[in-house]
Amino acid sequence: MAEIPDEEFILKTTSACAGCSASLILRYVTKAAGKDTVLVVPACCTSVIQGVYPNTAMNIPVYNVAFASAAAVASGMSEAFRAVGKKTNVICFAGDGGTVDIGIQALSGALERGTDFLYICYDNEAYSNTGMQRSGATPLGASTTTTPLGKKDYKKDLDAIVQAHNPVYMATACSAYPVDLYNKVKKALSIPGPKFMHILAPCPPGWRYPSEKTIEVGKLAVQSGMWVLYERENGKLSISGASKAAMKKRIPVSEYLKVQGRFKTATEEDISVLSEHVENNIKKLEREVEGIC
């Protein structure tokens, strides 16, 4: 396991909210990727937190692009670098809205074309930058400004959609486990071809919990099984460190929900549906690990 470098690629500081996990994720993604990297960022919190023009906190090149285009831009950029013999890492860093809803066609196309890039979706489970509207990644039961009584639909299964493209590498991560996250980004960037990471990103104002609880909320997501850390290398699944224990024994989903104001409106039925969903997902992953699927 590589030592994590002390060098920082984000200068003090962005204008992200206090306690923003997306900032912590960016810190480790850039540490893993290093100087020879371009970030491609569609409209999201990450595009507005960089600083006030003509200055930026980002000490590596960032290309801010239109919402639906991130993976298409990255595709062209990667082709151009490779054509002139450059190994520069091309990383899309996109929100959940910009991925599961708006950018999905570009992502699908880039994966299908075998683009040599890493696509990272940091998932704060809503359109946070514009004031927390519901996205396809918002979980059932969560209230947002457009679902004030709690969302009635399920979270879209982005990972299953990506998996159907058979990328060379895909993984999940969470800001509460930065070493796991760092190692996964490192590994992804060491493999040529299309790579994908889905990173859970707790958001204090959006999820309505106090800023100091960002790490605890991420850990509760993993300990309850609401978020499972895993990797798929050439299709082969392995469950990662912190989620191995949760595969066997989990805390109740309600422990994760009750620390977040956005689940205040969740009904008993919502909670049992979410719990059942966790159990089914864990069973499905267990069978896949054992080779029965």
Partner: peptide
């Protein structure tokens, strides 16, 4: 529109 890296950009 190209921004330059700077401490205190925000």
């Amino acid at each position: 529109a190209i921004s330059k890296p700077k401490t205190g950009a925000s």
